[in-house]
Nucleic acid binder design. Structure first.
Lengths: 208, 208
DNA sequence: TAGCCGAACAAGCAAGTGCTTGGTAGAGTG
DNA sequence: CACTCTACCAAGCACTTGCTTGTTCGGCTA
């Protein structure tokens, strides 16, 4: 007879709940994936870094893929929600754009590993069914930014002779790629980087 | 007794000369490394794409690493020479900067695979002695661009309130990352992308 | 105190990895 | 004709990969 007992949070196996140890392991894996790459990181590397044996990882996670999956989903959900809130609250396109940029830079502090993984491995991961959602999310992000840019052009805040799609890509590439060289303990703060970029983007580098 | 016979170009083994077949194999490998990643591409993948068996590759090359090495060196040498020539010939910092940008974009057409590999795998490859030269080259590129930016600031062409190093990174990230989405058979030409970027970089996106 | 459960270990398997070896067909060369 | 050279094949070796299995053990709970 099949048990009808509901699984309480305490009873659920570790691979489905949010135990502390589990989160710790995810963070360790994320950092390795981000710095060495997904393929270059072996389950033995992760286990070593966590001080356990590789087989023990499978008590917490179904597979190596499942780990990246969870890391990416968390970051992407977060970013999506934040973007939506900005669009909703911003009073004009220029504010919306600068807020989107600031928010993206802020994400570098909160999800540095996830951003690096998204940047480096999205292409490779997209070949697996499990990651079918990746192109969709990228598309959604593009739509959000495009709307802001195009509204800004209509209302005359942004130059009309710009190709909005191209402009979006320039911005996106600059902002996200920062994850490859940003050093949290260096001289430059995220805020100062964001401010300088917004400054250049809006007014250019040529002196007047 | 050691032979003193000089190796003529015809006698040299294939792994050291520049036979057509060899160049063909390098191109095939480069494309695979660029699209799938270095680690994700197996020597069997390369051999399959070339219509031979994996072992046969070792008639032409010492190792899989040797293949990327050669691909990267060719591109980097080319780019270094081109940069030097621009610096030498440009009459003012603004021309020098725009020429550097145009040249970088032009490289996307000539060495798309090498650029993608350099972008994606430099970090990973740098751990092997064989690729010790990579950080040095990156440094040299940075110095070249920085000189142009700083001279421009001194002469009053570029705004003085800019952090030159930061500005360089913004430019570099935008230009090189283009390799990830540029489609040679798409609507946008390399030239129009370059022009638009130079335009935004110099004057900003805000309407006046 | 008996039973259960989360967390880990110990061992190993199947598949795949880069690379090596010994050999061969065919074109060219002395 | 004997030879050398290029480009390749066929087979397989040593090793690493992600993952599975069966087991142990301390702590919580009924």
């Amino acid at each position: 007879m099949v048990s009808t007992k509901r699984l309480s949070a305490r009873n659920r196996p570790a691979r489905e709940n949010g135990s502390e140890r589990r989160a710790e392991l995810l963070a360790i894996a994320g950092e390795l994936f981000a710095t060495r790459g997904f393929l270059a990181t072996t389950v033995r590397d992760i286990a070593d870094a966590a001080g356990i044996l590789s087989g023990s990882l499978y008590h917490h996670f179904d597979s190596k893929e499942a780990m990246v999956d969870e890391i990416l989903r968390e970051f992407l959900d977060d970013q999506r929600q934040a973007n939506a809130k900005i669009i909703e609250e911003a009073e004009d396109p220029r504010t919306a754009l600068t807020e989107l940029i600031k928010r993206s830079y802020a994400a570098l502090r909160q999800h540095p590993a996830a951003i690096a993984i998204f940047q480096n491995e999205a292409n490779y991961l997209a070949q697996f069914e499990r990651f079918d959602y990746l192109p969709g999310v990228a598309d959604e992000f593009e739509k959000t930014w495009l709307k802001v840019l195009q509204e800004g052009q209509k209302s005359g805040v942004f130059r009309e002779d710009l190709n909005a799609k191209l402009t979006y890509r320039f911005i996106r590439d600059t902002v996200w790629t920062t994850v490859h060289w940003f050093n949290p303990s260096g001289k430059l703060s995220i805020k100062s980087i964001a401010d300088q970029y917004i400054n250049i983007l809006c007014d250019g580098i040529v002196a007047r």
